[in-house]
């Protein structure tokens, strides 16, 4: 049965340590100055001394209805057999149309290949080998979970079963496969 890979991000546990950011760079040879993921603070809310903040990991949201895929003139952007949105860098001409279409600023033009680039869920090197994505396995705060939503026994299925997972910018109908848990943080 086809997989439905998904990442769940428990914001209350994210400490903005950027271990994910760096692990991703090395796992995927992301060029200097470019990132597939970053985890900045979501600003500070309130006024001293009653304030709060949380860190939010930004990367491709793995939309099941992905604008980047539908607009891509060469079909370089595509869904693979497990519903993961990937880019075939040989087909990609670097027209950046997908970048204008992505509502999450998840894509960039790879300085070295000239092709569009983004989070791949580490599909080729890790997930397809039965391992966790690089960012997930190094997550210091223990905020990241990854797995197959079609498998009720997976961490992500179990976690989402008793926590409220929310997707970003649902108004665009992109149906992301990345879920954020806001329990314990001030949204």
């Amino acid at each position: 049965m086809a997989k439905k890979y998904s990442m769940v991000i428990n914001l209350a546990r994210c400490i903005g340590c950027q271990a994910c950011t760096v692990a991703c760079k090395f796992q995927n040879n992301v060029p200097e100055g470019q990132y597939r993921t970053k985890t900045p603070a979501n600003g500070i809310k309130g006024t001293y001394p009653d304030i709060s903040t949380y860190f939010i990991k930004e990367a491709c949201q793995m939309c099941q209805n992905a604008p980047c895929v539908s607009v891509c003139p060469t079909k370089a952007s595509h869904y693979n057999e497990d519903g993961v949105v990937l880019i075939d860098i040989n087909k990609c001409v670097g027209c950046k149309y997908c970048m204008t279409a992505c509502p999450y600023d998840a894509r960039f033009l790879n300085k070295e290949t000239g092709a569009a680039d983004k989070c791949t869920f580490c599909y080729e090197a890790k997930v397809s080998q039965g391992e966790k994505p690089a960012c997930v396995s190094t997550c210091l705060g223990g905020a990241l979970m990854f797995g197959d939503l079609n498998d009720p026994a997976s961490d992500v299925s179990k976690f989402l079963a008793n926590h409220k997972g929310e997707v970003r910018k649902p108004e665009f109908g992109t149906h992301p496969n990345v879920y954020y848990i806001y329990e314990g943080v001030v949204k």
Partner: peptide, 21 residues
């Protein structure tokens, strides 16, 4: 284009869902 010298691929690979194509 990020890859100016692959522009011809725009003619080779077609996606009728894509206005650009």
């Amino acid at each position: 284009l990020g890859k100016p010298f692959s522009f011809w691929k725009l003619l080779l690979y077609v996606n009728f869902k894509s206005v650009m194509s």
